[in-house]
Amino acid sequence: MIVRIMGEGQVRLADSHLTRLNELDDALLAAMDNGDDASFRLTLNALLDAVRELGEPLPDDSLEPSELILPSSDASLEEVRAMLRDDGLIPG
């Protein structure tokens, strides 16, 4: 799966990592539902850090279609809310 982090670039991520990312996505949704900005910020950064650590960066000149687009680490709660699907940022 190709994942784009807005403002950073793309990484190739094995589907086997989706379970961990979904756990973080669920925690992010909970923080958003509770309006807990501090928890939202920590969880968003943990999600993005996991993608960076588990994924393999693609070259900057790569034009692969992204299957998943994640917000930047400085995205606001409202900006992330606008990106949500029925099941959060991460499908599944």
Rank of each mutant, 00 (worst) to 15 (best):
R85W: 02
L77F: 02
A82Q: 13
L42N: 03
D49W: 01
L84V: 11
I2T: 13
E79I: 03
E67D: 14
L54W: 00
D74I: 12
I5D: 06
G88M: 09
S39D: 05
M83I: 06
S76N: 11
G55K: 03
F40V: 02
N22R: 15
E79G: 13
P57T: 13
S62K: 03
V51L: 10
L54K: 01
D60L: 09
V3H: 05
S76Y: 07
N34V: 00
T19F: 06
L68H: 04
L70I: 12
D61T: 15
N45V: 08
I2D: 05
V51G: 09
D86V: 07
E53C: 03
E8G: 03
L77R: 09
G35W: 14
E8C: 03
G9R: 07
M1W: 05
D36L: 03
G7R: 12
E23T: 10
V80S: 10
L63P: 00
D37C: 02
P71Q: 10
L54C: 02
L70W: 10
R81A: 15
G88A: 08
L47K: 08
L77K: 02
A30L: 14
D86E: 14
P59F: 04
L68C: 13
T19D: 03
L13Q: 07
P57F: 12
L24F: 12
P59M: 09
S66Y: 06
N22Q: 14
A30W: 01
E23D: 15
R52S: 10
M6L: 14
L63R: 12
E67I: 01
G88P: 08
S73K: 11
S62M: 10
L54E: 06
P71S: 08
R12N: 06
P57Y: 11
S73I: 02
D86R: 12
R52T: 05
E56G: 01
Q10E: 13
E67G: 15
M6T: 12
N34P: 00
L29N: 03
E78S: 13
R20V: 14
L70E: 08
A27N: 11
P57N: 14
G55S: 05
D49Q: 11
A30H: 08
L28F: 01
L13H: 05
A31S: 13
A82I: 01
A75Y: 04
N22P: 00
L44N: 07
E53N: 09
A14H: 10
S72N: 13
A50I: 11
E64G: 01
D49H: 08
L21M: 14
L18V: 07
D49C: 00
H17N: 09
I90D: 02
R41Q: 08
S62C: 15
V80F: 09
L89K: 06
L21P: 03
S76Q: 12
M6R: 15
H17V: 05
R41T: 13
A46I: 02
A50Y: 11
E53H: 09
M32P: 01
D33N: 14
V11R: 15
S16Y: 00
V80K: 07
H17D: 09
D33T: 09
D86M: 10
S66T: 11
L70N: 07
E67N: 11
G7V: 08
S16M: 01
A31E: 00
D33I: 02
A46P: 00
E67V: 04
A31R: 02
D74M: 08
S76F: 09
R41G: 00
D25T: 05
R20H: 12
